[in-house]
């Protein structure tokens, strides 16, 4: 488990460094996708299966692909790397150090000793009293099952509302982009299918 965590975290961090260091913007976006995949791996390790899947579907499936399209369409040249990174080091490094210290201090002081699961099942603390986790003795459901059971019954209203939002988004997108102008060229499926190869290509004499 810990090995997986280390692997995902190391890959995630190194590919996120590559996002900002890659020469080609397309490579950057591809590395970004790799970051998302690794992060969703970490989420699965935490037991957040539904969240991990949503992360993959939304970020990789929709947003990163959109990024990729935009980057490809914008025709950005491979940027020149004359300027050195040292110029940004004082400010960026300072902010990074502050964040690092915050995380280290926060982890050390608060969360790690309380999180018994991370220390293994055989750990017995002298300071912390031991609890019987009643939740674990019950039959457990995975996250997706639990969300499904709640969202289709008690909270069906939220599900409905999400669908209405999608309906409005659909109508709005059609209204704002569809041009009913006769000058706009459209695909004529029938004409395409009825076209004959021999008549289409003509030899200019």
């Amino acid at each position: 488990m810990n090995l997986f965590l280390a692997a995902f975290a190391a890959l995630g961090i190194s590919s996120s460094i590559m996002v900002i260091r890659a020469n080609n913007p397309v490579y950057s976006v591809l590395y970004l996708i790799l970051v998302f995949v690794n992060v969703s791996g970490i989420l699965i390790l935490q037991g957040l299966d539904f969240f991990a899947m949503i992360f993959l579907v939304v970020y990789v499936g929709a947003i990163a692909v959109l990024f990729l399209f935009v980057v490809m369409m914008l025709n950005i040249k491979v940027e020149e790397k004359q300027e050195s990174m040292l110029r940004y080091l004082p400010v960026g490094g300072g902010i990074g150090l502050i964040f690092f210290l915050e995380v280290v201090i926060g982890l050390d002081k608060e969360f790690v000793p309380l999180n018994l699961l991370s220390l293994g099942p055989s750990y017995e603390s002298e300071i912390l009293p031991e609890y019987l986790h009643w939740g674990e003795t019950l039959a457990q459901k995975t996250g997706i099952e639990a969300i499904g059971q709640v969202i289709y019954t008690y909270y069906f209203y939220y599900f409905f509302m999400a669908s209405f939002i999608l309906l409005v988004a659909m109508i709005g997108a059609i209204l704002l982009t569809l041009h009913n102008d006769p000058k706009v060229k459209r695909q004529e499926v029938f004409e395409q299918n009825a076209r004959e190869f021999s008549r289409t290509i003509q030899k200019a004499s």
Partner: peptide
């Protein structure tokens, strides 16, 4: 419809969903 649901929302999640529903329509 979304404004009516917004007026009677009783929870932050339903409130947020109603507000999003309303504002998406109004943006368009």
């Amino acid at each position: 419809l979304s404004l009516m649901l917004m007026v009677s929302s009783y929870d932050f999640i339903s409130l947020y969903l109603a507000i999003e529903f309303q504002s998406l329509g109004l943006y368009v």
